[in-house]
């Protein structure tokens, strides 16, 4: 069976790949493109470890076929830091110790960044609901929420 040729933009780079029909975007990111920051926690949309942004919207890359990405613009965790300079959210996650094992962290950072781009001044409740699809086995969530709130406050202060 012939593979599907897909041209897409990933973290501002035009990228193309060949995929099987049944491969997910997550499979291609991790196994073909060496973008292993996105994690597979559940493979069923429940944990958010595979979160990426497609045309500005958060999606679970485990629930999107790689073939669907044709012509789309994709952002992954690998595009978050500017070279060696961490994104403010990444910096705040370190300061607040908002991660332990780190498996959930890429998905949570991508989701939190998308929230702050849409809403620079979210309430704690809004942050908690926005991140409800990102499960964390380790931290108990509190430090994550505080890191996101602190980043938002800081960014507003700087603007």
């Amino acid at each position: 069976m012939s593979r599907i040729h897909v041209t897409t933009t990933i973290n501002n780079d035009e990228t193309d790949y060949l995929c099987e029909t049944d491969e997910t975007l997550l499979d291609v990111l991790r196994d073909h493109l060496d973008l292993t920051g996105s994690k597979e926690g559940c493979g069923s949309g429940d944990c958010g470890a595979c979160t990426v942004v497609v045309d500005g919207r958060l999606v679970c890359s485990c629930l999107m076929l790689a073939a669907e990405a044709e012509g789309r613009t994709i952002e992954t965790i690998e595009g978050m830091a500017g070279g060696d300079a961490l994104h403010p959210l990444q910096q705040k996650f370190l300061e607040h110790a908002a991660l332990q094992c780190g498996i959930c962290t890429p998905g949570i950072l991508v989701a939190a960044k998308n929230l702050l781009e849409r809403n620079p001044n979210p309430s704690e409740e809004e942050v908690r609901y926005w991140l409800a699809g990102n499960l964390c086995r380790c931290t108990g969530y509190d430090k994550i929420i505080r890191a996101v709130m602190d980043t938002a406050a800081n960014t507003r202060g700087a603007a």
């Binding site: 949309g45 497609v54 999606v59 929230l115 991140l131 409800a132 699809g133």
Partner: peptide, 9 residues
């Protein structure tokens, strides 16, 4: 329906 990620689709 689901999470923010699920609602994106």
């Amino acid at each position: 329906i689901g999470s923010t990620q699920i609602q994106g689709r």
